[in-house]
Nucleic acid binder design. Structure first.
Lengths: 333, 333
DNA sequence: CTGCGCTGCTAGAGCGCTCTAGTGCTCCTA
DNA sequence: TAGGAGCACTAGAGCGCTCTAGCAGCGCAG
C-alpha cells in the first residue's frame, strides 16, 4: 500500500546513476549502454518502480495523448475503440477515453479531454453541432469518426451512400421492386444513407420510395415493423435498415407475425456487428470496417499533428456481406 | 490552436492577483473574497483559461482518481459506467477509464491505471485470478464489481444465487417441473448462479437438473437451443439463462424452429438489459441494478480511502421482472 | 494602546518527471 | 601529440499546478 512512493530518484540511487539516466532508459531513447540499461531496469524491478505518467506528461513538451469520446454502450464504438487502442499505441500515442452517457454530455466529455491537454480529439459518432465542432477544431485537430461534418474538422467515415446503394442494388438484382428504408433520422450517417437509398432506387429505373422512421435500436426497428405489417396491400418485399440493430428488431417482429425472412421479406442491415454473423441470425448487411476506420483516424491525427493541412474526408468503402436474410423475390410476390 | 499556452500565471496577471489566489478560486476553497473570485473567473473567461489537470494532479497530495477497467462493448458495463461517473463526481472523485479488448489485456489496462497513480481501482467483471487481484489489492483498494473474489478485495455484486432462485421459484410457481439452465461457464457470477439454480430445484422438492453449456452471448444461447431442440422426449418446459443475451439467442432459435415462447417453453434471462424491456421482446428476467451497484462501488472506494477496513461484500438484491416470456405450464406439457 | 483573531492575500518550495546543455573519456586521424 | 568525433553520463532548469507559512490590515476586547 506504500510502494507507490518509489520515484525515479530511488531507482537512480539504487542503480548508482543519475536520475536523468533512469529517464533515458525508461523512455527507451539512445544514450545509455546496454549494461547500464540492464542495471537500471533491475533496480526498478527490485523496487517495483513504475514511472508516474502524470509527471512524465507534465514534463514532456508533447503529451502525445489522443482524447477519444465514445458512446458508452454502443457496440460499434467498442469495435472502434479496440482498433484505436492498437494503432495509437503503434504510432506512439496514448489513448485517453471520455465516455458519453445520457447524464454526461459530449461537451462535458470533450471538456475533460481538453483539460488533460490532449493533442487531438477523436469523436466517435459525434452529435455536436457543426458550430461547436468548428470552434473545437480551431483549438486542436479534431477527427469526426462515422459522422460527416464540414468546417475544419477531419472526417473518417464509411461511404454511407455507397453502402445503401450496394444494399439496394443487391435487392434489385434479387428481383425486388418495392424496397423500403428504415431511416436513421438525425443519427450519424443517416442523411447520407438516405441519399444512397434514393440514388439506388433511381438507378434501378425509378423504383418507388418507402421510408419508415426507423432509428438506432431494435425498438425502433420493431415499431417500423408494426407499421409495415399494418399495410394491407403493396407491402414492400424488401427492407434495408439504418443499422443492424434496427434490422434485427424489424425481423423479430415480422417473424412473430408469421412472415418468413427472407421468404416473405428480405432484410439488409448496416454495420455488421458481431451478432449479424451468428449462424442463427445470418443478417445480410453492409459492413463498416472498424479496423480500417480506426487506422485511418489515427493516421489522420498523426498527419495533422505533424503539420499536414486538413485533407479531404477519408471515406472507407463499405462491403456488402450477403447472408441468409435476403433471397430472390418469389413470383407473384 | 495556441490558446492552450494560457496558464494560471496569465490569469493571475490579468486579474491583478497572485497565482495562489487563482488556484484558490479554481479549487473552490475558502480564502478569497467574492469580489476577487468574480474578477478571477472573469479574467479566466476572457483568456479561455482551463486548469491543466496534469499539473493539478501532480501538485496535489491526493489525486482523487478512481481507475475503472471495463470490457469494451459489454452492454451492462456501459450501464455501470454511467452510474460510476455520476456518483464519483458527486463524491469528488474523477473517473479514469481503461478499456479491455481482446488485444488489450486486463493486466495492461490495470497497469496504465497504476501508472496514472489512481487511488483505487474498480474492476468491472474482472477475469483476473484471485492471486493477481490479491497482489493488486496489497497496493491499493480494489473493488471487484459483478465478480465475487476472496482475499483483501472488496466486492460489490448482485446476489446471483438469490437471483436464480427467484427465477426457478417463478417457473415452479407456473407449474414447470423440467427447468433447464443455460450456464455461464467461468464468467463472473456464473458459479453463484449455478448454485442458485440447484438450490432452487432442491427447494421445489428436488426437481431434476438440466444444464446446457450456455455462455455470454446470443451465439451460445443459440447453440444451446439447437441442443435443446434435438431432445426427442422429456424436453424441459422452461429455461433460465446465464444472461439476457444468451436467453435472447435461445428464444430466437426455438422460435425459428416453430416453438412458441412462452406457450411451448418459458424463458427467463438475467441482467435486464434495455433490450429485454422492449415490447416486442418482453423478456422475463432477473434485474441487476446498475445504479445501485455503481453507488455501492463508489461508496466502498470512498470508505476504504478514508481508512475503513475492507468490509464484507456488498450484495445487492436482484429483482424478478416478469414480462411475457414466461407463462403457466399447459396441462400435458 | 497593546494584543489577538480573522480575513484576504502572497511567496516559494515542492510534485516527479523531461530535456537541453554540458562534462569527461576513449578512440581516431593527421 | 594535438584535435576532433562520439559515446556514456550528469546537472539543473523547467512543466503548471498545490499548499504550507506567513504577512498586512482591520476590528475589537482588555
Amino acid at each position: 500500500m506504500a510502494s507507490d512512493r518509489v520515484t525515479m530518484e530511488d531507482v537512480a540511487a539504487r542503480a548508482g546513476v543519475s536520475r536523468a539516466l533512469v529517464s533515458i532508459v525508461f523512455r527507451g531513447v539512445a544514450g545509455a549502454s546496454d549494461a547500464t540499461r540492464e542495471r537500471v531496469l533491475a533496480a526498478a524491478r527490485e523496487l517495483d518502480y513504475r514511472p508516474d505518467t502524470r509527471a512524465s506528461r507534465l514534463g514532456r513538451s508533447r503529451t502525445r495523448m489522443i482524447g477519444v469520446t465514445f458512446s458508452v454502450g454502443a457496440a460499434f464504438h467498442g469495435d472502434l475503440l479496440q482498433s484505436l487502442y492498437t494503432h495509437a499505441d503503434a504510432a506512439g500515442y496514448e489513448v485517453v477515453l471520455s465516455g458519453v452517457t445520457p447524464e454526461r454530455s459530449e461537451s462535458a466529455a470533450v471538456e475533460t479531454l481538453l483539460a488533460e491537454r490532449c493533442e487531438a480529439i477523436v469523436a466517435l459518432g459525434s452529435t455536436l453541432g457543426a458550430g461547436e465542432l468548428g470552434r473545437l477544431a480551431a483549438q486542436l485537430p479534431v477527427v469526426s469518426v462515422l459522422r460527416a461534418v464540414s468546417g475544419g474538422v477531419d472526417v473518417v467515415r464509411t461511404d454511407d451512400a455507397a453502402g445503401l446503394q450496394l444494399a439496394v442494388a443487391h435487392l434489385v438484382e434479387l428481383g425486388h421492386e418495392r424496397i423500403a428504408l428504415l431511416d436513421g433520422g438525425r443519427a450519424a450517417g443517416a442523411a447520407e444513407r438516405r441519399r444512397g437509398y434514393r440514388a439506388g432506387l433511381r438507378r434501378a429505373g425509378g423504383l418507388p420510395e418507402h421510408v419508415y422512421p426507423g432509428g438506432l435500436t431494435e425498438l425502433e426497428g420493431a415499431s417500423s415493423a408494426t407499421e409495415f405489417l399494418a399495410l394491407e396491400r403493396d407491402r414492400p418485399t424488401a427492407v434495408t435498415a439504418f443499422n443492424d440493430r434496427c434490422a434485427l428488431g424489424f425481423i423479430d417482429v415480422v417473424r412473430q407475425a408469421g412472415l418468413r425472412v427472407p421468404h416473405d421479406v428480405s432484410v439488409v442491415g448496416f454495420d455488421d456487428i458481431s451478432q449479424a454473423a451468428y449462424p442463427h441470425v445470418g443478417l445480410t448487411t453492409v459492413r463498416q470496417d472498424a479496423e480500417q476506420l480506426g487506422t485511418a483516424a489515427i493516421r489522420t491525427v498523426d498527419a495533422r499533428l505533424s503539420g499536414a493541412a486538413p485533407g479531404p474526408a477519408t471515406v472507407i468503402d463499405p462491403e456488402l456481406v450477403v447472408r441468409t436474410s435476403t433471397a430472390p423475390l418469389l413470383s407473384g410476390g
